Amino acid sequence: MVASALALPLMIGAAGIASADSYGSTEVQAGPDGAATHSVQAGTHRGSSSFHENSTAAGPDGAATSDTSATANRNGDSRYRQHSGWAGQDGAGSYETHSSTGDGQGVLSGTLGAIGL
């Protein structure tokens, strides 16, 4: 009986965790050799979901940044983007990768439709 009484609050707490519709985390560091940040944000709202992660760092040898984001909505439209850039004593550079689907079709249904299946 005691175990049942203790289990109920745990089940209610676990249900609250499982139904969370947003998440966020941020970390910031600074010291004599430079500074850095890292953040993650994710959430759901009205059938849509999103994820965003960002990192930056700067020090005596240069600076860098990286950013990743992804979204999807209830219609199957989705977007993904990843971008990084850096600069230092030897030069600078950047790159980006992105993709998206639209017209209410997900990646798989859009691909299958494009090849006639």
Rank of each mutant, 00 (worst) to 15 (best):
residue 42 A to K: 09
residue 53 E to K: 04
residue 41 Q to D: 09
residue 57 A to H: 13
residue 36 A to G: 09
residue 41 Q to H: 07
residue 41 Q to G: 02
residue 60 P to W: 03
residue 66 S to P: 05
residue 42 A to S: 13
residue 37 T to P: 02
residue 48 S to C: 11
residue 51 F to Y: 07
residue 40 V to R: 13
residue 61 D to I: 01
residue 51 F to I: 11
residue 47 G to N: 14
residue 62 G to C: 09
residue 66 S to Y: 02
residue 65 T to I: 11
residue 43 G to S: 06
residue 54 N to Y: 12
residue 51 F to C: 03
residue 45 H to C: 03
residue 59 G to C: 08
residue 61 D to P: 02
residue 50 S to A: 11
residue 59 G to H: 13
residue 56 T to R: 13
residue 52 H to D: 09
residue 42 A to P: 13
residue 39 S to V: 02
residue 60 P to G: 14
residue 56 T to F: 10
residue 45 H to Q: 15
residue 37 T to K: 04
residue 60 P to L: 10
residue 37 T to D: 05
residue 50 S to M: 06
residue 57 A to Q: 15
residue 43 G to A: 00
residue 44 T to P: 07
residue 53 E to V: 01
residue 57 A to M: 15
residue 48 S to Y: 10
residue 55 S to H: 09
residue 37 T to Q: 06
residue 64 A to C: 01
residue 41 Q to E: 09
residue 48 S to K: 12
residue 48 S to P: 12
residue 60 P to A: 08
residue 56 T to V: 12
residue 58 A to V: 14
residue 36 A to K: 12
residue 45 H to P: 01
residue 46 R to G: 05
residue 51 F to A: 05
residue 53 E to F: 00
residue 64 A to Y: 06
residue 53 E to I: 00
residue 57 A to N: 14
residue 49 S to F: 06
residue 56 T to D: 13
residue 54 N to W: 04
residue 57 A to V: 14
residue 46 R to Y: 01
residue 59 G to W: 08
residue 61 D to F: 01
residue 37 T to Y: 00
residue 55 S to C: 00
residue 55 S to V: 09
residue 59 G to E: 14
residue 66 S to I: 00
residue 51 F to P: 03
residue 60 P to C: 03
residue 55 S to I: 06
residue 51 F to Q: 03
residue 45 H to W: 02
residue 43 G to P: 01
residue 39 S to H: 03
residue 38 H to G: 07
residue 62 G to M: 05
residue 58 A to W: 01
residue 63 A to I: 08
residue 66 S to C: 01
residue 38 H to W: 00
residue 64 A to W: 00
residue 61 D to W: 00
residue 40 V to F: 13
residue 38 H to P: 01
residue 66 S to W: 01
residue 54 N to S: 12
residue 60 P to F: 06
residue 65 T to C: 01
residue 55 S to Q: 14
residue 43 G to M: 03
residue 62 G to N: 09
residue 40 V to I: 14
residue 39 S to C: 00
residue 47 G to K: 10
residue 66 S to A: 04
residue 59 G to N: 14
residue 47 G to S: 11
residue 49 S to I: 05
residue 54 N to H: 09
residue 66 S to T: 08
residue 49 S to P: 07
residue 39 S to M: 03
residue 48 S to I: 07
residue 47 G to L: 07
residue 42 A to T: 12
residue 50 S to Q: 04
residue 44 T to R: 09
residue 66 S to D: 04
residue 40 V to A: 12
residue 47 G to W: 05
residue 59 G to A: 11
residue 54 N to M: 09
residue 50 S to F: 13
residue 40 V to E: 06
residue 57 A to K: 14
residue 40 V to P: 08
residue 59 G to D: 12
residue 53 E to Q: 03
residue 55 S to G: 11
residue 64 A to V: 11
residue 43 G to I: 02
residue 56 T to C: 06
residue 43 G to W: 02
residue 59 G to T: 10
residue 38 H to I: 00
residue 62 G to E: 11
residue 41 Q to C: 00
residue 61 D to A: 10
residue 53 E to D: 04
residue 40 V to C: 09
residue 51 F to N: 05
residue 38 H to E: 08
residue 57 A to W: 09
residue 53 E to T: 02
residue 36 A to S: 15
residue 44 T to Y: 04
residue 66 S to L: 03
residue 52 H to W: 05
residue 44 T to M: 11
